[in-house]
Design a binder for these strands. Structure first.
Lengths: 138, 138
DNA sequence: TTACATGTAATTATTTTAGTTACAGAATTT
DNA sequence: AAATTCTGTAACTAAAATAATTACATGTAA
């Protein structure tokens, strides 16, 4: 199961996008997400590093640096997910066994394709789509 | 990151498929995978429950109950992955916040689509495909 | 300067995953 | 039939990943 960082990050970005004129503090956001403010600050740090938003140290509030329709779920996912590969594999299968010798490269092809399918889907949806579904009256 | 149970399970099934006339013990398979035999027996238990292979208690060896071209990676994945949803979400977002109130159902739609894309890809590849790539001379 | 924020390191707690021990019971061997 | 070897499974331990928390240096602003 994939961690909840994408979910929380979308939540954060949706809050920022729907409150363009308010400076939301990490405490406030944490209250909506229902977690610790530090968790929020860390994710915001990753989102900033990825160029999705900007902040001023010591000052509450964050600003999106792109239009919601230009921020895909894939960008968000990549911003907060350090691992490149989606599927784990067992380490050091027995090289003396014909199956063990080649299983990793073989699986790697399948896993890469599956991951690409997932990422293509995430890449086709934007924060704007989320906002539209979140707030129908818009 | 997704656990390595699919990887190990494909390894197990590939071993069984490539040794149709040999009764492979969990000890032998564990030697090729490089893990503990109990890990293998547990996965084989799940694969049996899913109807992908059959075994006889106390007797070494397992037999595939379907042709490799009729066993998809999705079947294997579902056999050994108890969780239905791929992405986790944060629990109990604040219902007093308009974003918190609707974020789960909104994300659920996106996550479901992404998961379906992944599963469609896993469903399009079979154990036979794996075997062909594993043992080119076949 | 006081109050309140962020950014981040360090620590702790929780959950998930994998590995191990232990053993009852089935199958096989001698 | 006794000894051996294996599976199936529960129980436990270890390791890794994830999330939560504490602590505090530093920036902002009234």
């Amino acid at each position: 199961m994939i961690n909840s960082r994408l979910a929380v990050s979308v939540h954060i970005l949706a809050l920022i996008a729907t409150h363009p004129d308010q400076a939301l503090s990490s405490d406030y956001i944490a209250g909506s997400v229902n977690t610790n403010p530090v968790v929020i600050r860390r994710l915001i740090g990753s989102l900033r590093q990825a160029g999705l938003l900007s902040t001023v140290a010591g000052k509450s509030g964050a600003t999106l640096t792109k239009d919601p329709q230009d921020i895909t779920l894939l960008m968000i996912y990549r911003a907060v997910e350090p691992k490149e590969t989606l599927f784990s594999m067992h380490e050091q299968p027995n090289p003396a066994c014909p199956v063990g010798r080649d299983i990793q490269s073989t699986l790697n092809q399948s896993f890469t394709r599956a991951q690409q399918a997932l990422e293509a889907e995430l890449g086709s949806e934007t924060l704007a789509d989320i906002l539209h579904r979140l707030v129908p009256a818009r």
